[in-house]
């Protein structure tokens, strides 16, 4: 069986701790109907993404083939198989946000971060993705960063917003 090695994700768990957690999750969800998807969600929230080795480990645990589990992971856009940043930026490109400048915000973010949609900055701080409507069209254009909602964002403000999260992060590190 493959060791689910935590290759470069943001979490701080040791390999043994991860294996133990995975075994617990498998034990709890294996016999529940439809248990695989919540198990994948929990693992992703634990590790930040779903590493290939972990997917193989889970498929063994759930007695399902690697191809079947991969089929589920690749079906849902919520799941990610690549490491993601500490902050996940979602830029709404729904109709209202689009016409009120969402496209420009996205361009500014790309330039500011030096990455494309779906990519993560080298320091693993930010992942850039697009979204189709948060249901907050009155606040357009909207971006979300993790659980924070930023409304009526202006292209010129993008740098300040990113700076806020960078500083928040370095303060957090100092406190530790």
């Amino acid at each position: 069986m493959n060791d689910p090695k935590c290759s470069g994700c943001a979490c701080t768990l040791s390999e043994e701790e991860i294996t133990k957690r995975l075994d617990d999750i498998i034990e709890e969800y294996r016999d529940k109907p439809g248990g695989l998807i919540p198990a994948l969600q929990i693992v992703q929230s634990l590790l930040g993404y779903l590493p290939d080795k972990v997917i193989r480990y889970l498929s063994n645990g759930f007695h399902k083939s690697y191809s079947e589990v991969a089929g589920i992971v690749s079906f849902y856009s919520f799941f990610s198989t690549t490491p993601r940043g500490k902050y996940i930026i979602r830029v709404c490109l729904g109709t209202a946000c689009y016409v009120r400048g969402g496209k420009q915000i996205l361009e500014n973010l790309k330039q500011e971060l030096g990455i494309d949609v779906g990519e993560t900055t080298e320091d693993r701080m930010f992942t850039l993705s697009i979204a189709r409507c948060f249901g907050a069209c009155g606040l357009a254009p909207v971006i979300t960063i993790n659980d924070d909602i930023h409304q009526r964002v202006k292209g010129a403000k993008v740098r300040d917003i990113l700076k806020y999260y960078r500083e928040k992060d370095s303060q957090g590190k100092e406190m530790n």
């Binding site: 191809s67 079947e68 079906f75």
Partner: peptide
């Protein structure tokens, strides 16, 4: 055996091994 399974979705759907 389940070597082949639908991967991805929509137009990107392909039938095949894990992650195509």
């Amino acid at each position: 055996v389940a070597a082949l399974f639908p991967q991805n979705r929509g137009f990107e759907t392909s039938i095949g091994p894990a992650f195509s």
